[in-house]
Every structure is written in structure tokens, then in C-alpha cells.
């Protein structure tokens, strides 16, 4: 392509992009002016006047919207971080079983992956909430000497209580994501050549030792990028919390929009908080990836 053609193309893209942006912004300002709401964030410091079922820090209805949003963010973080850990453990277990030699375990894990991956997450969340927890009797279903109890209120474990909404979301997200993580891990393991397995076996190393010392270190660089994208999906999927009534940041945003009509500001808050969270996940994984690559000084 000639240089002046390139410049013309770039210019064209530039005009189209900013033209579209202009139309959207104009549309927004005209509509805001028409409804008389305006664009500002001062409402953030007014009392929220709604109650939250779940709050890791103290919260009453006289606290501000900003505080309510922060509580929502903490709730989101709580379910995302715990699902991330549970999904990784489950996914690793299923992935190893799937890649392993035991044909029964292989079949079971293949069936698990197929069923979980081919059904919508929303349905799975509903299932865990309505069938898994609300289906339990309201009098304590399982109780062990006041240490551990399971009921339709959730799980209580030596003073710690987990609501059924939180648990349904935790289980749903973890199980759904674990099926994808399992496939990522299996792919990573299969990317290591057969010769590496034969080499450690021929040296008399046990399957477990060989897997940990030879196969896994070589599989990890192939696993990390896929794992990162599954973690990002998990974080974004956590907004389905609203389906089971868990007060995550999206659900609280939704309530605030209904009360104040501040849809644009609320969505900006929402987008920015997810952007920050996912940047945090991506960067943490990037650091992890660099550490691994640093430990393999070859190639």
C-alpha cells in the first residue's frame, strides 16, 4: 500500500471513530439536559436508606451510597477470591484426572467437563440456590454439636456463617469455572512431549515425582495464559450474583439506579471497579508468569 493511501485510511478511521463518539456524547448530553438530572457524583454521600443482608463491615440504612458501593465491592471481592481458589483446586483435580491413566477417573472427569461446560452458568446458579440450598428444610438439616450446620440459611461453621446466597454463588462460579480450568490444565499437560515422560520413567522416578519435577514445570507456561483468562471470566461472571440475590457490587448498583436514577454515574463506577479488579488479576498473573519464565533460563 502506498504511503498516501495509508494516511488516507488512517484519517478515515479517525473521522469515523470520533464521529461516532461525538454522536453518542451529544445524544447523552441532550437527554441528560432534557430529563434535568445532570451529571454529578454528589449523591454518593447521601444516605442509602436501604438495608443490606450481607456486609463484612458495619452497614446501616443511614450510611451513604458510597459506603454501600464499597460494601458491595467487598462482597464481590469475597466471592471472587474464594471462587478463584476453589475453582483452581477443583479444576486442577479434574484436569489431572482427565489427563491421567486411570480410565474410570478419566471418564468421570470428561463427563463432568461436558455437562458443566454445555449448560448456562445462570441455570447452574439457580440450581445451586433453589435446589441446593433453598430445597433444604428450614430446621437445621445437618448439625454436628453446634460446630457445623447446614440449612436453607446457609452453612455455619464454628462461629463463621456463610449465607445460602453466597454459597450458591461460590459453588456455581467455582464448579462452572473449574470445568474450563480443567481443560486448560489438561492442554498444558498434553503440550509436554511424550519423551519427557519416558525419560523420567526410564530413570526410575515415580509417576508422582516425575509429574511434579518434570512435567508440571514444563506445562505451567502453557497453562498460565489460559488460567488468567478463566480468572477474568470468573470475576466478570460474578455479576450474575443478582440472580440469587447476593449483594455484590452489581446488585447494589442496580438498587441505587432504581432509587436515584443515576444510571450513567453508576455504570461508570461499575465499569471502573471491574476494570481495576481485572487489571489487578492480570498483573498478578503476569508477575507469576514472569517468575516461572525466570526460573527456566533456557530457550
Amino acid at each position: 500500500m502506498k504511503i498516501n493511501q495509508k494516511i488516507f485510511l488512517q484519517l478515515g478511521i479517525f473521522i469515523i471513530f470520533f464521529g461516532l463518539m461525538g454522536i453518542l456524547i451529544n445524544n447523552l448530553t441532550v437527554n441528560l439536559a432534557r430529563t434535568g438530572i445532570g451529571f454529578n457524583f454528589s449523591w454518593l454521600f447521601k444516605p442509602a436508606s436501604f438495608a443490606l443482608a450481607e456486609h463484612p463491615l458495619p452497614f446501616t440504612s443511614s450510611d451513604s451510597y458510597a459506603w454501600a458501593l464499597f460494601i458491595g465491592w467487598l462482597n464481590s471481592l469475597k466471592v471472587i477470591v474464594s471462587s478463584l481458589i476453589l475453582a483452581t483446586l477443583l479444576g486442577a483435580l479434574i484436569g489431572f484426572a482427565r489427563a491421567g491413566k486411570n480410565s474410570l477417573l478419566g471418564f468421570i472427569s470428561a463427563a463432568y467437563i461436558t455437562i458443566i461446560r454445555q449448560t448456562p452458568l445462570l441455570l447452574q446458579l439457580m440450581f445451586w440456590y433453589f435446589v441446593g440450598f433453598l430445597g433444604l428444610k428450614d430446621n437445621m438439616f445437618i448439625q454436628l454439636k453446634n460446630i457445623f450446620s447446614v440449612s436453607n440459611q446457609g452453612i455455619e461453621f464454628s462461629g463463621l456463617t456463610f449465607s445460602s446466597e453466597f454459597l450458591a454463588l461460590l459453588l456455581g462460579l467455582s464448579i462452572f469455572t473449574s470445568a474450563f480450568i480443567a481443560e486448560v490444565i489438561r492442554g498444558g499437560i498434553l503440550s509436554v512431549s511424550r519423551g519427557q515422560w519416558e525419560a523420567f520413567r526410564s530413570l526410575g522416578l515415580s509417576e508422582r515425582k516425575g509429574f511434579i519435577r518434570i512435567i508440571l514445570p514444563q506445562a505451567l507456561p502453557a497453562i498460565i495464559p489460559g488460567l488468567t483468562s478463566q480468572y477474568l471470566n470468573l470475576a466478570k461472571n460474578s455479576t450474575l450474583a443478582i440472580a440469587v440475590g447476593y449483594s455484590d457490587i452489581y446488585a447494589i448498583n442496580d438498587t441505587i439506579i432504581n432509587q436515584t436514577g443515576r444510571a450513567i454515574e453508576c455504570f461508570i463506577v461499575l465499569l471502573v471497579s471491574f476494570l481495576l479488579l481485572n487489571l489487578l488479576i492480570t498483573n498478578t498473573m503476569e508477575i507469576f508468569n514472569k517468575l516461572i519464565l525466570k526460573s527456566r533460563k533456557y530457550s
Binding site: 512431549s193 519423551g195 519416558e198 525419560a199 518434570i214 533456557y298
Partner: peptide, 11 residues
Amino acid sequence: MVFQQFNLFPH
């Protein structure tokens, strides 16, 4: 055992 493709551990 020594293999055709060496199969050294690259890491």
C-alpha cells in the same frame, strides 16, 4: 536408556 531425541529435561 538413551533415546533418539535425547529427551533431556529442558528446564
